[in-house]
Structures are given as structure tokens and as C-alpha cells.
Design a protein around this nucleic acid. Structure first.
Lengths: 225, 225
DNA sequence: AAACTATCTGAACGTCCGTATAAAAAGTCA
DNA sequence: TGACTTTTTATACGGACGTTCAGATAGTTT
């Protein structure tokens, strides 16, 4: 079941040679991803990233540029992969013919829950990083806009199912769906605390409850009649 | 309609005299509240807070202690007030007799949307700060636990309405409701961007959509039959 | 007025930050 | 092999950070 997530990255130079520093560069980006995910942009230091990547200080700047560059690169390098998983999930349900609100919600949520629950620590870190970034408005604008194109695709899909809905209603329910999705990753500890069970379950185990919640919510805001 | 929010704070010494430095202390806490809300714990510097409060550097430490103390104090000083508004809203609907999921959701969400939309910049800042804090798991544990008692009260209320629901289901839907609520404050810019309208509306204007979404979501996860 | 306490000032402390860079090392190509 | 490029090392820089504190000031009590 857990098949490897394809790496959409280009590790060759324009002339076809494998770049010598590419392995190091990835170690740096991976370390940055883990650090940013677990501590946030401001709290992380370049020295921390260097230590995590097991390289010296200068190497981080050499491969990652400034701290801000590094942050943007880390976020951008996986966007296409996640987007493609979502688009594929949407295409799959559309190919089946009749489509429902629940189908759209499912296609949007599942790939994210999936990568957030994988064995691969880097993808888990990326999922956590997204949750961190999206929940605060104050990151770099370029970062926020990374996820807009796919959001618009899903809004258009909802629009098709509920032609009477206003643009603001559609944007609102998608934003609430995204927030709910991210909170599963960001707040599992709180859920565990409030429910009394000490157990912190993987995000995917909340899948059906989350899909129910978002589907029910959207259908209540955008009634079909 | 917008009546002043009562100040639950104690500005007198034990002997009844008004503390001389109390006004300064509040200026410091107010400034810290605004700064933490708009930039987050790590990004804010003590010097920035001092400048915003129009006091010298040492005064911030004198009245606020360490940066971490200051942060906790800022969050803690308004918890009781917000909690009381929520409890009052819940008591009001319970007094009316029959109670629904929607009533419980409304009682939880409205006070927050209310303070987040008030003219008072300090309460708006506090609302924004809550959104920032709650969306990431990595703040000080004491902070996270500030909001648990009231959360448990509302969970108990839901439990009464849906006796068959498990503790984990209840904790999950409450957490998703909270996340949705906070995302309205934190992501209004994104909603505006995605809906095409340049306008950023006050949180309270999303009230009915938000209540619909959460009510529909909870009812889908916890069906009444 | 004198003694005392609370508050505030201004300056300093040691530490760590992000970034830059010269020189060494490693790899590539002629 | 020797010239050339890419990568890595080690170190340094200026600045900002959180915190501390001796001393000045203002308010209170005796």
C-alpha cells in the first residue's frame, strides 16, 4: 500500500552531469525541513540546520542561500508533488462519473493525511511545516501563494456542484476545510489530552471523522436545494 | 450593542492601595500583547515591546519578568474573561430550555468572534494571539492548558446531546471547531484572496457561515440516530 | 524632614545571530 | 599532469539579542 512518493526534483545540471554537490544540497534542505517544521522559521538558526545536516556552517549558505531563501526552497520543492497527488485523486473520482461534495473533500484531504502519516520522516516534516505556515498569515507572501492554484481547482469543483454558491462562500468553506485538515496534524496532542487517551494517533486515523466533519460543514453552508 | 468587556484584573495591592506602577505594568502588557499577536513569540524583541509601550528597556523586565513570563502573563490575564463570556452564553441557551448542537456551537464561537471584531485593539490583538498560539503545538505547555477547562465544559455539553459519542469523537469535533474558528481570524486575508474580493471583513461577518460549518460538521460526525 | 520603598533610567554584560570571505580541498577536464 | 571549477573549511565581522544592575528619581510613611 505505501508506495514511494515520486521525487519531482531535478538533480542534474543542464549539461546532463550529476551535480557534485547535489547530495549535500539535499541533506541541507532535508535538515532545514525538519528544523523549520519542528521549531518554526524564527526559532531555527542556521547553525542548528548545519548541525542537523552534519555539514559546516558555510555549506548551508552555499547551497541554501539566505535563511529566507532556504525556507522558501524547502516549501516549494514538494508543492508540485502534493498538488499532483490531489489532482490525481480528483481525476480518479471524476472518472467514476457522478461526483459528490464528499468525493471532493476526500480527494483534497487524503493525500495530505497520507504524507503526514508516512514512515518517511521528511514527508512528515513537510506536512507539519505546511500546517505551521498556513496557520499564520505573516509568512512571506510567496509562500502563501504556493497553495492557491490547487485551492482554486477545488473551489471550481465545488462551484460545479453548487452553482448557486457565492465566491465568498466557496472560499470560506475551502479555508475552513484546510484549517480543519491542518489542525489534525497540529493538534493531535490536544485531542489526545482532551479525550483522556494518552495515545497520539497518526493523522490518517482521523480520516473518516475529518471527512465527515468537512463534508457535513460544507453541505450545511451550501445546501443543495 | 458593544458593551464594554469587564476587566477582571486586580489593580490593587493586598493592603488596598492602588499600586503605583500598575498603569505602567498594563502599558507593558498591552504592548506585549500587540507585539506577540502580530509577530509571534520568537520574532518579538523586548526592545520592541519597550518601544511600543514607551518605556525604557529595564521597565519591561521589571514589570514583566523574563520574555517567557511576559508571554504567559499576557495570555493568562484575559482567559477568565473570555471563559466567562462563553459560560454565560451557554447558560443563556440552557435557560431557554431545549438545546441543540447549533446552540452549543453558537455559545462557544460567538464570544470569540465578538472580541476579535471589537473596536478595542487590545482585545483584537488577544484574539489574534490565541489563534497564533493554538495553531502550533510547540508553545509552553502551561499555555495550552489554559483553555482546557472550558473546552471540557463544552465537550460535556455535546456529550449530553449525543450520549453515544466516544470521548475521542467529542474531542476531535471540538478541536476541529476551534481550528475553524481560529482560522477565520488567522486566514481572512486568504479568504479574501481566494474569493476575489479585495475586502477583508471582520471576523463577526463570518459568524453564520462558521456556525453552519461547525454545526453541520459535528452533526455529520455525531449523528443523532 | 528623614528614612524607606517602589519605580525607573542608562549602560553594560556575555552570547548568539546571519552573513561574508579567504584559503584549502576535491573533482573535472584538457 | 596541470589548469580550472566546484565544493568545503575555518574564521571573522558587526549587530542585535535577553538579562542584569548600580544608581537616580519619585512617592510614601514615620
Amino acid at each position: 500500500m505505501p508506495q514511494p512518493i515520486p521525487n519531482t526534483e531535478n538533480s542534474r545540471n543542464t549539461d546532463g552531469r550529476v551535480a557534485r554537490g547535489e547530495a549535500t544540497r539535499e541533506r541541507v534542505l532535508d535538515a532545514a525541513e525538519r528544523c523549520f517544521a519542528s521549531e518554526g522559521f524564527e526559532a531555527v538558526t542556521i547553525r542548528q540546520i548545519a548541525r542537523a545536516a552534519e555539514v559546516t556552517l558555510g555549506v548551508v549558505s552555499f547551497h541554501g542561500g539566505s535563511k529566507e531563501d532556504l525556507f522558501k526552497t524547502v516549501l516549494a520543492r514538494r508543492v508540485a508533488t502534493l498538488d499532483n497527488l490531489r489532482k490525481a485523486a480528483l481525476a480518479a473520482v471524476r472518472a467514476r462519473g457522478e461526483i459528490t461534495i464528499r468525493d471532493v473533500v476526500e480527494a483534497y484531504l487524503t493525500p495530505y493525511l497520507d504524507i503526514a502519516s508516512r514512515g518517511d520522516a521528511q514527508w512528515r516534516a513537510y506536512a507539519q511545516l505546511i500546517a505551521r505556515v498556513a496557520s499564520n498569515d505573516d509568512y512571506f507572501p510567496e509562500v502563501r501563494e504556493l497553495y492557491d492554484p490547487t485551492a482554486r481547482i477545488f473551489i471550481a469543483e465545488l462551484q460545479r456542484l453548487r452553482p448557486g454558491a457565492s465566491a465568498e462562500e466557496l472560499a470560506t468553506v475551502l479555508t475552513l476545510t484546510v484549517a480543519s485538515m491542518l489542525s489534525i496534524v497540529a493538534s493531535r496532542a490536544r485531542i489526545a489530552g482532551l479525550s483522556g487517551s494518552g495515545e497520539i494517533d497518526p493523522p490518517i486515523s482521523y480520516r473518516s471523522k475529518l471527512i465527515d466533519f468537512c463534508t457535513g460543514g460544507i453541505e450545511m453552508v451550501l445546501p443543495s436545494d
